[in-house]
Amino acid sequence: MSGEVIGVHVSDRHAFSKQAADVITLLEGLGVEGDAHCGVTVQHRSRVRFNPAQPNLRQVHLIHAELFDHLAGRGFDVRPGDLGENITTRGLDLLDLPVGARLTIGDAVVTVTGLRNPCVQIDRFAPGLLKEVVHHDDDGRTVRLTGVMGVVSRSGTVRPGDDIVVELPSGRHYRLDKV
């Protein structure tokens, strides 16, 4: 399994969207250098209010560009960085990865921890978008399409054009859930 980075993004503010960059630096155990969500403990405001001491399992946010293609077909103009991801990918089914999958991206490694759980801010960005990115499957399970979250397992830099190589965890694989 492999894919490619088509965009990298960062924001030093707790804003919904992130700005495109030529390169981002991932810091082991912390996240994206200069990003508002970088830290050992959780940095997302709603989670900080709940428990500021919980570990940051959302250091890096990755979204597959194929989601933007799908949304365009549904009438939404969503571009890389708009939904707050740090890394936009193409050619890799992020949502099908198991917990613990290791992604070598550039010279960095990100370990996948779970799914991004989208919130109402998505509807503030584009009314009706939340219904497009969260729905229920035929078995009644909630399906979240807004990418995956991970932790930085090895520091390094990531640029558009970098390859992404997947290493699956050994043993039993566990389906991603929201983090």
Rank of each mutant, 00 (worst) to 15 (best):
H64V: 09
A65S: 15
A65D: 15
E66V: 05
E66A: 14
E66Q: 12
L67T: 05
D69V: 14
H70R: 15
L71G: 11
A72E: 15
A72C: 03
G73Y: 09
R74G: 01
R74L: 15
R74A: 15
D77C: 05
V78A: 13
V78L: 15
V78T: 12
V78F: 07
R79F: 13
R79L: 11
P80C: 12
G84L: 08
G84W: 06
N86F: 08
N86Y: 02
I87Q: 05
T88A: 15
T88M: 13
T89C: 12
R90Y: 13
R90D: 12
G91S: 11
G91C: 10
D93H: 04
D93I: 00
L94M: 05
L94P: 01
L94H: 02
L97E: 03
P98G: 07
G100M: 04
G100W: 02
A101F: 00
L103E: 07
L103F: 06
L103I: 03
T104M: 09
I105F: 04
I105K: 02
I105H: 03
I105P: 02
D107C: 02
V109G: 11
V109R: 09
T111M: 10
T113D: 10
G114C: 10
L115R: 02
R116I: 00
R116N: 14
N117V: 00
N117H: 10
N117F: 00
V120E: 13
V120F: 13
D123V: 14
R124K: 13
L130C: 04
L130Q: 09
L130H: 12
K131R: 15
E132W: 06
V134H: 04
V134Q: 12
V134T: 11
H135N: 10
H135Q: 01
H135D: 10
H136I: 00
H136K: 15
D138T: 12
D138G: 06
D138Q: 14
D139V: 02
R141I: 00
R141P: 00
T142D: 04
T142N: 03
V143D: 07
R144L: 09
R144M: 07
L145D: 08
L145F: 01
T146N: 01
T146I: 06
T146A: 12
G147P: 04
G147Y: 00
V148D: 03
V148H: 02
V148Q: 03
V148W: 01
G150P: 10
S153A: 15
R154L: 12
S155C: 02
G156V: 04
T157P: 00
